[in-house]
Amino acid sequence: SLVALLGLSVFSTALAFVIYFRLLQTLGSVGTTAQAYMRVPIGVAIGVLFLGERLMPMAWLGLVCVLAGVIAMTWPDRTRIVAAGR
């Protein structure tokens, strides 16, 4: 059980914090928050692919809305790009 505790603390907690702070550094707070919304579509896709689950039309509509929201959150602001000289 001590090996399991050590494995969970290193891989689940420490690695998650390293990834989280790296995302904050590279994507900023909005991009990092957006990745949390992607957990639901990824979980649903895993269920569809590996468990043979079927989605109702409203679930598909909900997934499209989640993806549209993430795209809207992370879409680069054109005025900032022009101001930065890119």
Rank of each mutant, 00 (worst) to 15 (best):
L5K: 00
S1Y: 09
M38Y: 07
A59W: 12
W75S: 00
L49G: 06
G69H: 13
V82F: 10
L15G: 02
I46F: 14
I46D: 00
R80Y: 06
V82H: 10
Q35Y: 08
V40C: 00
V48H: 10
F17I: 01
R86F: 14
V10K: 06
G31H: 09
A45Y: 15
S12Q: 05
A83T: 11
S1C: 02
L51C: 02
A36M: 02
I71G: 05
Q25W: 07
P76L: 05
W75Q: 00
F17D: 01
T26H: 13
G31W: 01
L49S: 07
L6R: 10
P76K: 11
F21Q: 08
M38H: 05
G85K: 08
Y37W: 14
L61G: 11
I71H: 07
V66T: 12
G7S: 03
W75N: 02
Q35G: 02
I42D: 01
L49Q: 04
A36G: 00
E53N: 10
F21D: 04
G47N: 12
A16R: 03
V3G: 04
V44S: 10
A84C: 07
L51H: 03
V64S: 10
L24P: 04
F17H: 04
W75F: 12
S12M: 00
F50L: 15
L61I: 11
C65M: 15
W60G: 06
V44E: 08
L24S: 08
A4V: 08
V70E: 00
G31T: 02
V10Q: 00
L8Y: 01
L51E: 03
S12A: 09
V3F: 12
A68M: 06
A68T: 01
A14C: 10
A14I: 11
M38E: 09
R39G: 00
I81S: 01
R22F: 09
Q35I: 15
I42G: 00
